[in-house]
Design a protein around this nucleic acid. Structure first.
Lengths: 180, 180
DNA sequence: CCGAGTCGAGACGCAACCGTTCCGTCTCGT
DNA sequence: ACGAGACGGAACGGTTGCGTCTCGACTCGG
């Protein structure tokens, strides 16, 4: 039951956006009464934070492929896989935009989602430093933006499809940038 | 009058988002009657496309600084200036998210805003090729994503402030990536 | 000095949701 | 077999925004 409501919630969130999201529609799509929702969560914000951070947490694998290039490519592949799915592709930009407006939502999601991804990326850099692939004083701040930015821009903002070797080529450029 | 309505529209759009935008609130903030709005535009979508593409078009300067590095830095500075303003910082991510949901809005805005910026960035690359700063077969597709992505990610998604020399450092990394 | 056009203000009927409350049903554990 | 509790569904009063329409006031060109 809770699961059916959650599924309906994400469908509605993707198709309507957070601002337009109606709990009435969620209930209807789940084949549930509104009471079933209000019995579990107190508000739309509560529900959103709870459900979104639940799915965000478990997406935190940190595979060590043995090389910087392998790690970067794996990281980019994870991001691309997520952003190429229908629901996340619509939901993530919407929540980011909404986060600019609702501090509560922004803080709740950022502390889970963003920080998870941030530490994951940082670990890639530090492993590379230990291996001697990158200098110890690599510009981490910039590296994090370079890792996430271009792919997010392409997939989530301009909605441009990627050629099969796109991630490969991007990986090469990124490593060149890190080492510069 | 039209100008007062437009100003109120952008204020409301920034604080409420497109989905929650109420023409009633726009009228009230502009000190206008609703009739004044409906006399000029037929719908919220019509109004949005009209007003947004109007301000987007005139932000299309293409300065030639004489070097690739100068051009890139100038481009990044333009983007950063725009995204550091209160209204664009809130409005742009919101419209991007909304564009994923409303094909009409997406198409109308993309053909003006995105293509304008795209050609601007492409011209930077081609000038560099003419000068011999970049090889003729530079990966333009990747270069465009690298130019826009990291800065957008930092300013519009993670809302992280930038150190004064951030754009300088980013420029160096980007040029290294282009040449790789 | 007058009539056409625009103005702000707001009432109108309509629709969508809100969050709550009440049904009658169904499924449990005991 | 029975009572507790969650279920789907529907209705409640209240709020908000829509798009239309009607006011009386103002401004100007002729």
């Amino acid at each position: 039951m809770t699961e059916a409501i959650a599924a309906a919630f994400f469908e509605e969130l993707a198709s309507a956006g957070y601002a337009r999201l109606s709990l009435e529609a969620v209930a209807k799509r789940a084949g549930a009464g509104k009471a079933a929702i209000y019995r579990r969560w107190t508000s739309k914000l509560d529900m959103t934070v709870d459900l979104v951070s639940a799915v965000a947490v478990d997406a935190s694998g940190t595979t060590d492929t043995g090389t910087l290039r392998g790690d970067v490519l794996a990281f980019l592949t994870d991001v691309a896989d997520a952003l190429n799915q229908r629901l996340p592709a619509r939901i993530i930009p919407d929540l980011i935009a909404e986060g600019g407006r609702s501090p509560e939502l922004a803080e709740a999601l950022f502390t889970t989602v963003r920080d998870t991804r941030r530490t994951k990326a940082t670990r890639i850099l530090e492993r590379a430093i230990e291996r001697g692939e990158l200098p110890a004083d690599v510009d981490r701040e910039l590296a994090l933006d370079l890792l996430a930015g271009p792919l997010y821009w392409r997939l989530a903002v301009t909605h441009t499809p990627t050629a099969p070797d796109y991630l490969d080529r991007l990986t090469d450029k990124l490593i060149a940038a890190f080492s510069a």
